[in-house]
Design a protein around this nucleic acid. Structure first.
Lengths: 204, 204, 204, 204
DNA sequence: GATGAATGAGCGTTCATTCAT
DNA sequence: AATGAATGAACGCTCATTCAT
């Protein structure tokens, strides 16, 4: 076992875990099921992970690290706030749509009020938050985003909206085409709900 | 047991459950802990609830029914979309801030991928969603909300944003004043991120 | 469950435990076997004992408390060191012979190098040691026992000899009549190995 | 594996085992710990021993064979019963004191009610018993030891006493000087507890 | 011979639920 | 209705042992 993280078995376990967790939920999933799905012995799981929770946490860390890495690469060559935000939304939807099992786990199983799980997950989620906040800040500098909007609150709206769209999509058994939501979500975040003609018409 | 729902012990159990669930999380909570906290015997819990999950589900149903009832009453006398939306946001924050234990349970413990729990919760959550969607629809009729925004998507943004703000607040141990977020959240949802002068300046 | 120690189930578990421990040895014994032997459910064991080790320790504590109590009563009315010592030896053998299962557990399973077990057992074993030492001390005062023999060493010889006799008896599947060893052991401890005529004959 | 018994790795494993067993106790010791302590791979252990129990048993057999061999050599040139017994006691204490880890294992870990262990150990322990019994028998022939004392019982007293002294010494963390106990133990075994003047004084 | 990754049987313990009182 | 002692199914995890390299 030269390599733990990134090793063949390590990956197989994570891949098996997403499947099982997505199907049964974390608490109803059995370590033996994961092992079986991965085609290895029960005990082998514990050569690569400390315990069941560690599988869930590692799963998120691996995927989030990947997500953040590729997201950053995609955002590298964008210029305007508009492009950037749209690509961010699109990539988030794309990744989720590409791996519905992963999406299920992300939207449900990770939202646990469990110290170990939370501590393992939070730092990695915050990395994503930081990207969104950087996007907003850049938007401010470029004059696209209103200066008086607190960056953190803007991030909460952006992430909260995207996240809710994904949750609903998962709840509908991932039937719709998530990526097609990109444009409308983007428009809403940028322009808000208000019909600009309303003020002109004196409705305010 | 003349009365189940609404009976004295029934309420005592729910009240005890919020406390225990908030502190330990649903899966780490023991039925015996809830019984003790409620000052009753373990077996008595099962005179009022089918099982542990039923407690969590009933808890949400009760609170959500209350929430929806009072929210509707507050929204009854509002006229413009602006008032309505602001009151909705404010009331959501107010309720959460008033009962942090309830907030913790709502933001974490209810997000379970568990058939029984989900089926018990979804209908009641959808009642809230319907209110939000009605608000959006009314806003459209009044000409405040852009007609081409799908109501459901607008609801996702509104709820998603509010929900994310609450989640973050809970994650920060409920230290900030949540209600003070109302105005900024309201502004963001209505006007979006865009600095309107940007288009005039030709940044688009 | 009004009573734990001394309760009906508590005793049943201990009685079952001696039997199972004696047959299989502590480490090869299964809690489920003890429960079955006691005619109760597996979980019930844990209403009366903290864990498997606690059963072993409690077993020894109960039996040793009994042993010490009855031994003291028997020794109460003895006068000379001779009577006292003989009764002590006899009672030790009698108890062991009366309950071979208990004897097996005492001679083997309790000699564990395990902090929890040792800490639970030592204080109770020392109570017995104290009795032996008191007997020796009284013997000294009465002029029966040589003054220059350290009481503690005398106790080690007395207990060590009795204990070894019992161990050997257990190793021979408890076939001999243990109580019949009383006299010879007594003689040996009192007079030692030496043939007193030897010195007279100048063999020394 | 040209050589098993006596090979370099074989010895290394035994040496490592004493250390680990003494520290953790047989059941809490892990084969991997022994391997690590011996500086070899886990699997290598099984090239030299059948299983974990075999290590414990072999350990005892090796050490006991050595012990018996050297004890016999020391006793070869003694003449009187007195010398012989004293040397026996002294050598037993000396060996134990020289290797406290070995002593701990001998006093605790070997006293297992386990068929395999017992069967492996008994024959070797009996070799020691036989020596003691030979010493007693010779003592009888020489007229030092009372003829009517059954040799086996005498052996039980001798071994039981020595053994108990060692056990107590181990329980006190091997702090005292064990060898200094030789004389008093010897005196006790030879002359017994009785103050010979007592009978003269008519105390009997 | 030496290794150590892989195995999987095995078990102590928990705790939601029941039911006799 | 209320109790809480009793239950036993269920499972995460360990670790002695194996065997391909």
């Amino acid at each position: 076992m030269e390599e733990k993280r990134g090793g063949q078995k390590y990956d197989a376990i994570l891949q098996a875990a997403v499947k099982v967790f997505a199907q049964k939920g974390f608490h109803r999933s059995r370590v033996s099921q994961i092992a079986e799905q991965a085609g290895i012995g029960d005990g082998t799981v514990y050569l690569y992970f400390h315990n069941k929770e560690d599988i869930l946490v590692s799963l998120f860390q691996e995927r989030m690290t990947d997500f953040v890495y590729h997201l950053r690469r995609r955002l590298e060559h964008t210029t305007t706030f508009y492009d950037t935000l749209k690509i961010l939304i699109h990539y988030h939807f794309e990744v989720m749509e590409f791996n519905p099992d992963q999406a299920i786990v992300t939207q449900f199983e990770l939202r646990q009020q469990n110290a170990d799980i939370n501590e393992g997950i939070s730092p990695y989620l915050r990395k994503y938050f930081r990207i969104i906040e950087e996007v907003v800040d850049r938007g401010k500098k470029q004059g696209f985003v209103k200066q008086d909007i607190p960056t953190v609150v803007a991030r909460k709206m952006i992430f909260g909206t995207i996240d809710e769209v994904v949750t609903d999509w998962v709840n509908c058994n991932c039937t719709d085409f998530l990526k097609e939501m990109t444009e409308i979500v983007y428009q809403l975040l940028i322009y808000g709900l208000l019909d600009s003609k309303a003020s002109e018409r004196g409705n305010l």
